[in-house]
């Protein structure tokens, strides 16, 4: 299949999924339901899916490791902690302000992760995500303690499991920031790919490495915060989409980034649809479906990649 045909087929699949997402639901299809609920939900799924996949690939290039993404590097947990803190300190702040606080916390958490990694002398491919998971666990414990003290456990739970059932018009628009950041990432694609060659090669080619890494981490933090705030944490998507695309077209972002974003959006839609259809008329949150489907897919990729390298 030529690459143009592949892109067309992928686009058609995405469109079909989006259409299905607008048609599936309890309650009769009316213009009001479409405008208030189905279209916002579908858009939110597309935006969050594309954004998280792009955040995942950027993180992987910066950490020089295929197996990190916001939920395995302490980023998502830090965003939740930041969100919790701002909810306690300034409960009436507008959602954009809360999201920015969550983004700053996410950035700090990610920098901490990279700092801890630097201090570990021998790192194998698999210790890197393990360190991130441990760090995320510690941050999550702190958040849980705080939430317990301030009686906000329910709120914390809503950030921990990605769920689009509450997405309505007026409650998801922060996610458009994910689209804007995806475009920024595409514009700077060459710089990110070169940064992915490692610091020494990047500096040798005249790149301001610190600035490029800073930009990548800012994008990651903002996308993560925007999704955590609106729909909650969605695991594995940032791992699975970039790894599949990498196997097919490689990591030159100029070529792969649109596919990463598209696949992320598609997987998100598919998992959400599955969660809506299987227990119909009830729902399983997309975070849970992704945990199972994405986790399985990820395990497959892990074993396959190792087999090929070994």
């Amino acid at each position: 299949m030529s690459s143009a045909a592949a892109v067309n087929a992928a686009g058609a699949a995405l469109l079909a999924l989006a259409t299905a997402s607008m048609l599936v639901g309890v309650g009769d299809l009316s213009t009001e339901i479409l405008l208030a609920s189905r279209i916002p939900r579908t858009l939110a799924l597309l935006l969050a899916g594309a954004g998280l996949a792009v955040a995942g690939v950027l993180m992987q290039l910066v950490a020089q490791n295929r197996f990190v993404e916001p939920s395995t590097a302490g980023t998502a947990q830090s965003a939740s902690l930041g969100m919790l803190a701002v909810t306690i300190l300034a409960p009436d702040a507008p959602v954009v302000v809360k999201m920015l606080c969550a983004a700053i916390a996410a950035l700090v958490g990610t920098l901490l992760f990279l700092r801890v990694l630097k201090a570990i002398p021998l790192r194998s491919t698999l210790t890197v995500p393990l360190v991130g998971i441990v760090l995320g666990g510690i941050i999550w414990a702190a958040a849980t303690f705080l939430a317990y003290r301030y009686d906000l456990m329910q709120m914390l739970a809503s950030w921990s499991t990605g769920d689009f059932s509450t997405v309505l018009r007026g409650r998801y628009e922060v996610l458009w920031i994910a689209l804007a950041l995806t475009i920024v990432a595409y514009v700077a694609a060459d710089r990110f790919t070169i940064a992915g060659l490692g610091r020494d090669s990047a500096v040798g080619l005249g790149l301001d490495y610190r600035r490029v890494v800073g930009l990548a981490l800012t994008i990651v933090a903002l996308v993560t915060a925007a999704t955590v705030v609106t729909v909650g944490t969605i695991p594995f998507l940032g791992l699975v989409a970039p790894n599949i695309v990498s196997l097919i077209v490689g990591d030159n972002l100029r070529r792969s980034l649109p596919l990463v974003a598209g696949l992320g959006a598609g997987l998100m839609l598919a998992c959400d649809l599955l969660g809506r259809l299987v227990p119909y008329p009830f729902e399983i949150p997309v975070g849970t479906v992704m945990g199972v489907a994405g986790g399985g897919l990820f395990l497959y990729l892990l074993l396959r990649r190792d087999a090929r390298l070994g």
Binding site: R66, T193, G250, D251
Partner: peptide, 14 residues
């Protein structure tokens, strides 16, 4: 290198 790029891409980055 962990990034998966082609030989030609790599040389092009030069």
């Amino acid at each position: 290198v962990t990034a998966r790029v082609t030989v030609r891409d790599l040389v092009a980055f030069g």
